[in-house]
């Protein structure tokens, strides 16, 4: 799988929410595009990742 342009090895049938937790992403502060489409937060629980997926994960920090 590719995440933000980098190759990432996946364990079999990994759930997106587990991947996010292992990599310390705070679900409340990110946006994810999967294969060119924005992924609604309501679907994070159901999504199972596979090796062909291309993810773009944006992490927002405070300030404005």
């Amino acid at each position: 799988m590719r995440v933000n342009g980098k190759e990432v090895a996946l364990s079999k049938n990994q759930k997106l929410v587990d991947f996010l937790e292992i990599n310390q992403y705070d679900i409340r502060k990110i946006a994810i595009e999967c294969n060119g489409e924005i992924l609604p937060k309501s679907t994070y629980q159901e999504v199972i990742l596979n090796n062909e997926d291309r993810l773009e994960i944006v992490r927002f920090v405070g300030g404005g």
């Binding site: 502060k29 946006a31 924005i38 609604p40 937060k41 944006v58 927002f60 405070g62 300030g63 404005g64």
Partner: peptide, 18 residues
Amino acid sequence: EAFDKPEMKSMLVNTALA
């Protein structure tokens, strides 16, 4: 998007793009 809090940034970006 010109909010201060990261949760608000994320909410607006996710909702608007979808």
